[in-house]
Design a binder for these strands. Structure first.
Length: 490
RNA sequence: CGGGAUGUAGCGUAGUCCGGUUAUCGCGCCUGCUUUGGGAGCAGGAGAUCCCCAGUUCGAAUCUGGGCAUCCCGACCA
């Protein structure tokens, strides 16, 4: 049991902040709004990276890298795009420092002003499409399926670790296609990849849908998204995929000769997920004892703790445990055998629990006598004593159970916190309890804005699987053909 | 950029109103011994530009002025 750790029910956001720091995932840095991702936190991100990277490659994409700096003029080529990002851009104006007159420090050298200022990328559409112009001449050059892993900067006023930071890590896919249909299919396909990853790797159930025009990416014709529900009932956008139409092709004059020898503008998509997924992972599964990680993304999947009264006994346990370690590693399971003498077993139990290690094994004198070990699963904290013989097989199965169980638990929670609301009075009451509210909406931005102003709730998405259903807009009473998801969000 | 608060050891804090020995306590850290099945006990030890600058004073963590930083609430958040 972790000491002095605030409970979710008492203060969810404090619980989150403290968890991030105490589980050694990240900490605040000397730079306002920027965080340091610590080795344990980065190890989780690395696992996400590796799984996603493979999925991208399996769907035919290649990695590339484009500059962090974007000429200011590029950003303004696409009108909606610049409008969306202008307010949160970091700008490079100079390229040199010099010693100040007192000789005590450095100042910006006013002589070294850049002729054209550079924007630190908030996203890379513009630099990439200015490059694609050179790559694309004919339909034979298409499609281009590129992805890049990079950092981006968005100068946020209010930041929270992993959820909204001034600098963050992400991947951004940028594809170019000969036809509208192909580009739309690509945007939908990559959303499926994201949903697959969230459901099956993160064990975070997500709703797939399309954003309302108001919530659309700056410069996109359509924005698809996966939305997750956190344990406080608030929504978190976990990934987006955009159908960009020909907007960027037109802005950067990217045309190709089709089979009929006619010039056409290229069709585009972009899609991304970021270190924000870490926030989703943390807030979906973790509990009052600390982090709970899905086995597929846990840097340490099994921790083994020896319990002994003497050095001799420890050596005995070392010998007993070694074959178990070997058997687990042979199955590709990541094991940490923690036989450090300076910490007591109880301390280690709490520590690995706090860090979300899915399975813990304890081996002590009693186990030596009986040929057993104690197995504890993090998701339920359930402990069982069983024969050490064949334990690796059992653990392999147990990890699959845990992966399944935490997904199921999160899905049940989401379903229990999702409800249909049909009147404006009910809406105002229900939104205070958080959760997803399925409501009719008249399809206008005015209504959406009015609802947001009064209740802070936004349309998270129009779910793909929303059944056709005649109804009346919750706010305006105008006719509507399907329900959308309203929620307060991160 | 508006409103409020805070700055004392790695972290959390007492002291500040009402100036006065060697700046309090807890966690953590180091050393030693005893311990080890759910965050061990005892003993000893190290660790502080009291946010910065200036002023008042015999004397400033404490009073005055200025600056800086951080946090909370707004504004902002494809």
């Amino acid at each position: 049991m972790a000491k002095d750790f605030v409970k979710r029910s008492e203060n969810f956001s404090e619980w989150y902040n403290e968890l991030v720091v105490r589980a050694d995932l990240a900490e605040n840095s000397a730079v306002r709004g920027c965080m340091v991702i610590k080795p344990y936190g980065y190890a989780i991100w690395e696992k996400m990276h590796d799984a996603l990277d493979k999925m991208f490659k399996d769907t035919g994409h290649q990695n590339a890298y484009f500059p962090i700096f974007i000429p200011k003029s590029f950003l303004s080529r696409e009108a909606d795009h610049v409008k969306g990002f202008a307010k949160e851009c970091a700008v490079v104006t100079h390229y040199r420092l010099k010693t100040n007159e007192e000789g005590t420090g450095v100042v910006v050298d006013p002589e070294a002003r850049l002729e054209e200022e550079l924007i630190v990328r908030p996203t890379s559409e513009t630099i990439i499409w200015s490059t694609y112009k050179n790559w694309i001449k004919s339909y034979r050059d298409l499609p281009i399926l590129c992805n890049q892993w990079a950092n981006v900067v968005r100068w946020e006023m209010r930041t929270r670790m992993f959820l909204r930071t001034a600098e963050f890590l992400w991947q951004e896919g940028h594809t170019a296609h000969a036809t509208r249909e192909e580009a739309e299919a690509e945007a939908r396909r990559m959303l499926d990849v994201y949903a697959d990853f969230a459901n099956n790797w993160m064990a975070v159930p997500v709703v797939k849908g399309v954003k309302s025009p108001n919530e659309r990416f700056a410069g996109a014709l359509d924005t698809y998204c996966i939305e997750a529900m956190m344990q406080d009932g608030k929504a978190l956008q976990a990934g987006t995929s955009h159908f960009l139409g020909q907007n960027f092709a037109k802005a950067f004059d990217v045309q190709f000769l089709n089979k009929d020898n006619k010039l056409e503008y290229v069709w585009a998509t972009s899609w991304g997920v970021s270190t924000r997924l870490m926030g989703a992972l943390i807030m979906t599964h973790s509990d009052d004892n600390g982090l709970v990680l899905p086995p597929k993304l846990a840097p340490i999947q099994v921790a083994i703790v020896p319990i002994c009264k003497s050095d001799d006994q420890l050596r005995e346990i070392d010998a007993k445990v070694q074959p178990v370690i070997d058997a687990l590693r042979a199955k590709g399971i990541t094991v940490k055998y923690d036989n450090r003498p300076e910490y007591k077993p109880g301390w280690k139990f709490t520590e690995y629990e706090f860090k979300g290690v899915p399975v813990r094994l304890a081996v002590g004198p009693r186990d030596l006598e009986n040929g057993t070990c104690e197995v504890c699963r993090r998701d339920t904290l359930e402990k069982t004593t069983m024969p050490i013989e064949g334990i690796a097989e059992h653990i392999e199965q147990l990890m699959a159970d845990i992966q399944q169980n935490i997904y199921r638990k999160a899905l049940d929670f989401r379903l229990s916190q999702t409800r249909k609301v049909d009147t404006w009075d009910d809406f105002k009451t229900e939104i205070e309890k958080n959760g997803f509210l399925l409501c009719h909406w008249d399809g206008t931005t005015e209504t959406e804005e009015a609802i947001k102003a009064e209740t802070k709730a936004t349309i998270r998405c129009i779910p793909f699987d929303a059944p056709e259903e005649e109804g009346r807009c919750i706010y305006s009473g105008k006719p509507s053909h399907r329900r959308v998801i309203f929620a307060r969000s991160y």
